[in-house]
Write a protein that binds this DNA or RNA. Structure first.
Lengths: 103, 103
DNA sequence: TCAATAGTTCAGTAATAGCGAACTATTGAA
DNA sequence: TTCAATAGTTCGCTATTACTGAACTATTGA
């Protein structure tokens, strides 16, 4: 069983969030997650054409460790949701502002 | 004479801006530049204790190439200003929102 | 002309991204 | 139970990038 690292709300840093979002693919992933409001990684929901599974897994790990998403197991799959409440509590308006400009 | 690379306004990308700001030192540099509204790199204005000159130079280069600052020579020194108008035109509110949470 | 100052560039090392291959965990069916 | 299929992670590799001190360039002023 793999345990996921999720920083607590107060451990989410601005630099960490910005670094996590400073990648077009991860920006798209977060945007997509918010639009679907529930998303399975990899092939299904991730808008990542022709990207290696391991690379995708790494992107999700970076988002997770930055505190942007929460991952839980649901059968074989992983369910990822954006930690909107935590991010908004920590940096009000930041996520919305950034995503407004995301492709 | 060193020529500086400054992307045009429309070449400024969201990912580029976020990547440039996804470093605590560079966030502080930009914040400091805005507060002073005019700033010489290195020792004088940069809030960077004990950081190598080359590292600092590199940070300024990254900010410059992301389109966040404009550098011009003024005698021996370099004058750096934040390209507020360009950033705001491209991503209204983004800079203000991010800097509001910067240390 | 020369020393002092401000920055950049260079070379080396350390850290990180991206990839395929191998591995783990869960489901569902024979 | 056992085995194949599926979803992700981890590993080993290579390629790119960051950090640093040392050397270099450019400008000022004596």
């Amino acid at each position: 069983m793999v345990q996921f690292v999720h920083p607590s709300r107060e451990d989410i840093t601005l630099a960490g969030v910005l670094a996590a979002l400073a990648d077009p693919m991860r920006l798209r992933i977060v945007k997509s997650l918010l639009e679907q409001n529930d998303c399975m990684s990899c092939t299904e929901a991730a808008p990542c054409p022709g990207m290696a599974k391991s690379t995708l897994s790494n992107h999700f790990r970076i988002l997770r460790e930055a505190g942007l998403i929460q991952t839980s197991k649901k059968g074989v799959q992983h369910r990822n949701i954006v930690r909107e409440a935590d991010i908004n509590a920590r940096f009000p308006g930041l996520l919305k502002t950034i995503l407004a400009f995301a492709g």
